[in-house]
Design a protein around this nucleic acid. Structure first.
Lengths: 138, 138
DNA sequence: ATCGGCCTGAGAGCCGCTATCAGGTGTGCG
DNA sequence: CGCACACCTGATAGCGGCTCTCAGGCCGAT
């Protein structure tokens, strides 16, 4: 059993965020002790894990709440939950592809600057330096 | 030359966002025509591209402004700009690794639900279903 | 000449935190 | 025993980065 602080540490999210998520209804099974202190069980931490996972691919909190509610509703909602997970996977896949694309831009930029530094050149890309359009680089 | 609308379309960001970025000082070289309408050149679109790239890996707008200002300052800032690009690459790399980790959780979840559906089982993970701790799954 | 379309800036609203605060509780120490 | 201290609580304010709405200006077509 973990307090908010311990759970936050263990799951690598901020205490604030964990409380915020709790208030948002993401952890319906977290119990309180006699002093009203939240007690996260190991199973509760698994809920934290899935919420963290969904958030990290940009799922809105409303949609996360929906998923949680489906879990509470029981086994009849398994197909819909399965669909949500699949859709989330596709979303994550697209994000990786997007990141890969941006990485290529960064690689280009990096070697561009490397070249400038190595050869003591001017930044032809910057309009401040009498831009020659055909030499333009991102 | 492109209006905000055309540039937004071409670069796949919203018009609103482009105006917001312009107001944030991210496009210091965009000219206006005689009716005060912004005219994005192809070179300006490259600035949009790099801003989009930096944003997509979570760079704060203040840091982007800093990068833009360094560009304006001229060639003496090339080493610092190079450093920023490198740091951004590392950040992007970490994000990909993180996404990969989350993807594994999603894969686990997916096959978990597949198994439930295929074998007509109950969701042992959900505390509503008389959780047996050793059967717990994320 | 008025209508629709696209532009403008200003400003309100939204989401998801993040930070601050006042107050309650439990533990250890002089 | 009294008190500091750490840690919990909920309420509320603030923030970053959009996103949306609006009133107003300019243009070309009917």
């Amino acid at each position: 059993m973990y307090t908010v602080k311990e759970a936050a540490e263990k799951m690598d999210v901020s205490e604030h965020t964990l409380r915020f998520w709790a208030k948002s209804g993401f952890f319906p099974f977290v119990k309180r002790n006699e002093n009203n202190i939240r007690q996260f069980s190991d199973n509760d931490l698994e809920w934290v894990r899935i919420v963290k996972c969904l958030r990290s691919v940009g799922t809105e909190n409303k949609a996360i709440k929906r998923y949680i509610d489906l879990c509470i509703q029981g086994d009849s909602t398994i197909p819909e939950r399965y669909g949500i997970i699949q859709a989330t996977k596709i979303k994550a896949q697209k994000q990786m592809e997007e990141l890969q694309k941006q990485m290529e831009i960064l690689n280009y930029k990096e070697s561009f600057y490397q070249n400038l530094i190595k050869n003591n050149l001017k930044d032809t890309w910057n309009p401040m330096n009498n831009l020659q359009p055909e030499e333009t680089a991102v």
